[in-house]
Write a protein that binds this DNA or RNA. Sequence first.
DNA 1: GATTTCGGGTAAAACGATTTAGTCAGAAAC
DNA 2: GTTTCTGACTAAATCGTTTTACCCGAAATC
Lengths: 375, 375
Amino acid sequence: MTDGRQGRPGGSGPSRPGGSKAVTLKQVAEFLDLSPATVSLVLNRSPVADSIPPATHERVFAAARELGYRPNFVARSLRSRRSFSIGVLVPEISEGYAAGVLSGVEDHLLEEGYFYLVASHRSASDLLEEYMQLLKDRLVEGFILVNTPLAESPGLPAVAVAGHESLAGVTNVVIDHDRAAYLALSHLAELGHERVAYFKGHAHSADTQDRWRGIEKAAESLGLELRPEHTLQLGGDAVEETFSPEEGYQEGHAYGRKLLEGNGDFTALFAFNDVSAIGAMRAFLDAGLRVPEDVSVVGFDDIQGAAFQNPGLTTVRQPLRKMGETAGRILLERLSGDSSHPEVVTVEPELVVRGSTGRPRPGSRDRRPHRADSR
Amino acid sequence: MTDGRQGRPGGSGPSRPGGSKAVTLKQVAEFLDLSPATVSLVLNRSPVADSIPPATHERVFAAARELGYRPNFVARSLRSRRSFSIGVLVPEISEGYAAGVLSGVEDHLLEEGYFYLVASHRSASDLLEEYMQLLKDRLVEGFILVNTPLAESPGLPAVAVAGHESLAGVTNVVIDHDRAAYLALSHLAELGHERVAYFKGHAHSADTQDRWRGIEKAAESLGLELRPEHTLQLGGDAVEETFSPEEGYQEGHAYGRKLLEGNGDFTALFAFNDVSAIGAMRAFLDAGLRVPEDVSVVGFDDIQGAAFQNPGLTTVRQPLRKMGETAGRILLERLSGDSSHPEVVTVEPELVVRGSTGRPRPGSRDRRPHRADSR
DNA sequence: GATTTCGGGTAAAACGATTTAGTCAGAAAC
DNA sequence: GTTTCTGACTAAATCGTTTTACCCGAAATC
């Protein structure tokens, strides 16, 4: 709790509709024939007020309630130099990722009496800096940076979600990629798959590297072989560009076909994200393969559309809400004086099994496109 | 622009990293050997400062820049009783609808120097009221209510997006349902469809009624017949409940089957939203019908997954961003003194044609489930 | 030469809290 | 009967602006 202070006037209190000005501390004091100082000390449960008798405490609270006193937040902010607000920077708020994380952030903050100000920087670093400055001007007490690359330490406590760099003083909340890779691959291995193809993410993304390391470890521990010809890097030479879902889908479709054009000797695909998985799945279906009978497909993220595919996409869900909650919690802990903070916190992904994965066909060694009757 | 005031210190200005306190107006004044009043008047381009010679103006600006002066936002707020913030209330921020609208809201507000505070009330009216009060405490200058039912007038200027009621003093930004219905139905009519089935929305939603009226008008003007046996109401008796996408999909699937169990004499479906459209599309495919050859399907919303269906879902896109922008613009206009405001503003939907619609089969009059070979 | 008008400012009162350093009456200690 | 404590408060500074009501010397007007 921030501090249990300032009991909220009960729902029954007078609500001062419209016209009349808000009640100030001074008015409460006059009403009680006390000084504003006393009223303030009592309402804030200051230790200094310990010597004030219980009867007075009660009179003060009763008056505050009766008059519908609500402390002026701005005045209080000015004096105490606290805003009970934090700044959240995201690439774009309408994106599913950012929105999911925000939901978790909000949950925790509002409970503790904080609000947050959001700004979408649309991956423009000048905008990012400008917004950070504006937020500091507004006295935010800390930052949460969602998927936002940062050149230098912000001057305030900060927590990054899926941060790209590790920066001094910034805690990074990330998904446990090792675990994610293990969940996906052990699921496939248990079903009997031995030859799995992969889409790697775009070259410059931090996620790409971490995830790939996770895949290497998991493959090793599960006895799966990683073959270069089964590994396609999405995006090719694109330099950390933001792709629209549409493009991601197209890319997945193209790379799915590309996989088939290789020696095709694989029974499952672990894609880098859901959109490319869906694109690839479509390419396989178009080529007359059946999913999951001929090829199993696993995605990553669990976007909205994943469940509505035919078959539904098996995928590794990122616990966005939880990541947001964690980020919010850690930031608030730091704000209330906990100067020690971990450099990185991982959260557990979750495997969502749907229809796109199944056992490989027994004799699928030399499989080739199997013409389905329909289409 | 809010007011061009307070030239931002150029990027080259001293940035006072960490330690040293922020520069105050008083310090600037002392540095210049002027009074704080003068400096304030000049920096704010007050008309009172007209009598101050240009040379002094320049000295003041130069000093402000050089010292890296940034006005204390909170102090200014306290004095001027303005916060340059607005409160946004949404059912749940991670929902695609709210996030899309927010994106538009943000766009406009940030440009004008405003920030916004969001609170998700999760459709609990007590939470809603509590948050509104907390936001008022924080001196927000107005509200934007996204898809949020309101019992009584908030005490501040407000704009609702997809508001359920029309409330005094609250402008309602809604999609033009008449136009939306016309877009969808004229597309189907042009393709040659004559018998169209409908999913109506849940009974208690305002959208349901408006949309249905739009459908009636459009059907009439296009010479389409509305048959009761082709009209299914989603949700049955559910009382304004929030359904998860999963449930919506299931419902669409069930109702799609229900349609087929009727006399089945329809060649197209106009669903209430994308999830139910996708569910129904799946039901049709499961039943061996082909989309769009046997049945065309049109959705509503254009959710993320709509494009990734097979076939891609033709749908009426709600211009969420634009609705947010409009809401933001109208609210700011009201805040800058424009007391006249429309009661309702409609924005134009957009038809997105994908693969799920096509010409009906010529002799489809007496069609019955056509068993496809696969499945 | 006395009055008015300007030009170029400034003093000081808000805004509404928080908080430190007292004050002041009465009880306790000596 | 002083002195010393307490207990119960309060005065006033402070946070950093904004803004109204002056002020004062010099030029213009009568």
